[in-house]
Nucleic acid binder design. Structure first.
Lengths: 171, 171
DNA sequence: AATAACTTTCAGAAATATTTGAAAGTTCAG
DNA sequence: CTGAACTTTCAAATATTTCTGAAAGTTATT
């Protein structure tokens, strides 16, 4: 397969994958494009490569920067802004975990606490099942919270090393 | 908070969460409803509680069964089918991991292999960056693949026990 | 202060995903 | 077999999300 074709396939697949995970297709595609670009690209280059509008490119680049996956690069003497993506996949994964945790798990924990305090007779089956389920989810979430915090802070070598040791290095 | 209100909040929040992860809102809401229902519910009860159509209820219940998160229950002497959700959150999480892995990671790995074999001069910067990035993603994915397989097979106690030991039990 | 070179915004248009509901299909008791 | 009680299907309607592009905003230069 030639580079151009491979690149197009990667961008399309990364976009499809994003869609399945609640990330908009274009945002994932821009990310894919920058991941495989040796140099930082301008908004115009992104627009051109992906055949999208200026507004769309701008909005999704901003979102990617927000997620900490892309950075602006300024070239001395040029007005234009260029964009480049972090290429170390371990760092990318950690950043995504960090952001999703912040946007979802951290918001969910207080809600679960509140829900676990529902009023009512504990001998009532409805109340009992509700409370038990919520408490289970809560316990699970709190454990996830700790583990993810550790992962966010961890260095790749240490983290994967530990897991591989834990789970056995050989498949 | 009273049970009815708490239930409604949980269903709404679980639905919103699903949306962020590429799962359709109604499917997540049905799942939430069944998670907190002491008894299995009929399609009619689900329709009524969530104010959705018969077709919608049927399709999303089927999807949940497909994902292994919900089971049909037949009551002796009744024609109607009832639906119940697995309530052990660890099992639920494991099941979701298992299915998503099957639907996404397992399909992605061969694609990454193919992409990593792109033709072209390795001294070309474009080819070099592409190959390196793909190989990085591939290595990462293969490691994830192993770890997830272990998790899928693991028993809760052993798995979380190991992680907690690894990451330190106290926050 | 005027202009050029950019970036950002946002209302309306377009694309995508989800839902409805009525008809068709199935199963079973009589 | 027939009809009642259900479940499934799917084309059309609706809702939601995303995208466009022109106008407004910004910044640097002369």
């Amino acid at each position: 397969m030639q580079l151009a074709e491979a690149k197009a396939k990667f961008i399309a697949d990364w976009g499809r994958l994003g869609t399945n995970w609640g990330i908009n297709r274009t945002m994932a595609q821009i990310h894919a494009l920058l991941l495989v670009s040796p140099e930082a690209l301008s908004a115009d280059e992104v627009m051109e490569e992906l055949a999208i509008s200026r507004g769309n490119a701008n909005m999704n680049l901003r979102e990617l920067i927000d997620w900490g996956l892309v950075q602006k690069v300024l070239r001395p003497g040029e007005r234009k802004e260029f964009f480049t993506a972090e290429k170390d996949i371990w760092k990318v994964a950690r950043q995504i975990v960090k952001e999703r945790k912040k946007r979802e798990l951290d918001l969910m924990l207080p809600v679960l606490k509140e829900l676990s305090e529902v009023e009512g007779d504990k001998r009532d089956k409805g109340v009992k099942t509700f409370t038990e389920t919520i408490n289970n989810i809560r316990k699970f979430s709190e454990q996830a919270d700790k583990i993810l915090d550790t992962m966010i802070k961890a260095d790749e070598h240490w983290f994967l090393g530990s897991l591989v040791k834990l789970f056995g290095g050989k498949s």
